[in-house]
Computed example of a mutant assay.
Amino acid sequence: MIEITINGKKCTCEKGEFLLDVARRNGFYIPTLCHHPAISGQACCRVCLVEVVEKGRSKIVVSCVYPVERPCEVYTDSERVKEDRAVVLMLLKERAPESDVIDALCKAYGAADGSRFAAIDGEKCIMCGLCAGACAKLGTGAISTVLRGTAKKISTPYDEPSKDCVGCLSCAYICPTKAITFKDDGQTREVWGRTFEIVHCRECGAPVGTREEIALAARRAGEEPEELCPTCRKKKMTDIMAHTYGIV
């Protein structure tokens, strides 16, 4: 175990543990956009900057991927951190001027007006890659980073409806800036240029997911697709166990 100091408070952690995780475990707030516990190592938004002092030398690091190797002092909101974070947010604001999340962070940290830079009209995406990572982890790989330079974006191949998409909305739910739009009226769901039928639980009528999403989950589990919501599925398993063991 290693003892470090965060904003004057002594904290212990394991060697190699990332600073962001240590700070959050000890109750310190560090803003993030591209960080998600299910998809590690993004480190592209740079909002989680902190100041680290080791042997009298200070440096700014990206806390979500900075491993603690030795005792040090950490400052999550020093003047230097605030200034650097404000610059990062100013640039992100120009990348995604329509994002309410980034706008709120800019106001919180006093980010300067970046209008001298070319903003991307109507954009919310900061190219953090969380959506593509979630899609890949799910096993569909329906979306990815396409094109290069200023035209770089997240999309389906050739911007055409992808046969691999199952309409699960994992991409939309994990997006930190709500850049992925979709429509859902309870009967159908539209996302990435495709329309999916929403299946409802055969017992209680609650929405379960798209037919493609249910089929994918069944294949991964090695089972047949079953149109039951989590609550009714749990009840079914309880009834089976009760019958098996003769519990009345």
Rank of each mutant, 00 (worst) to 15 (best):
M237W: 13
S155F: 05
F196P: 09
A151D: 14
T181W: 07
L216C: 10
I198W: 01
K137R: 02
G209K: 04
A132I: 06
E73I: 04
C201N: 12
L130C: 03
R233Q: 15
W192P: 12
V52N: 06
K55W: 11
F182P: 04
P71W: 00
V62C: 07
C13K: 00
R233C: 10
G129R: 08
S99C: 11
S155P: 02
T195N: 08
C44V: 11
P97K: 06
I154P: 12
S162F: 05
R24S: 13
K107V: 13
E73Q: 09
P161V: 00
N26Q: 14
G41C: 07
N7E: 08
G16H: 05
P230D: 04
I240V: 15
V22G: 05
E54G: 03
G209W: 02
R57V: 14
A221H: 01
C11D: 02
C45Q: 06
A96K: 14
R85H: 01
T181M: 09
K55S: 14
G110Q: 11
K234S: 04
A217E: 13
V208R: 11
R57P: 09
A112Y: 07
V208A: 13
E79L: 10
V53A: 07
L105V: 07
I247V: 15
G16Y: 03
Q187H: 12
V248Q: 13
P71N: 02
E160W: 08
K15F: 09
A151M: 14
P157K: 03
E212H: 06
A112I: 04
E51L: 05
V191P: 10
V74Q: 09
R85W: 00
R219I: 09
P37N: 08
C131W: 07
D21L: 15
G56L: 01
A242G: 12
T231E: 14
C232Q: 06
E79C: 02
L138H: 08
S144Q: 15
I102W: 00
V65D: 00
V62K: 05
D121K: 01
F18A: 03
C131N: 07
L147F: 13
A151Q: 15
A38T: 06
W192A: 07
D185E: 02
T238C: 12
E123G: 05
D84L: 15
G209M: 00
K124C: 12
P67M: 05
R80F: 14
R70Q: 10
K9T: 15
V166I: 15
M237R: 08
D113E: 08
G193N: 12
G133H: 01
V208S: 10
F18P: 02
S170T: 14
V87Q: 12
P161S: 10
L147Y: 15
D103T: 14
A136E: 04
L105N: 11
Q42G: 11
K178N: 01
T32C: 12
L130Q: 08
I2E: 06
D113F: 05
V68N: 00
M127N: 06
V68L: 00
C13Q: 11
P97D: 13
Y173T: 06
H200Q: 05
K55F: 10
R57D: 14
A215Y: 01
L228G: 10
D159R: 10
M127T: 11
R220T: 06
A217L: 12
L138P: 03
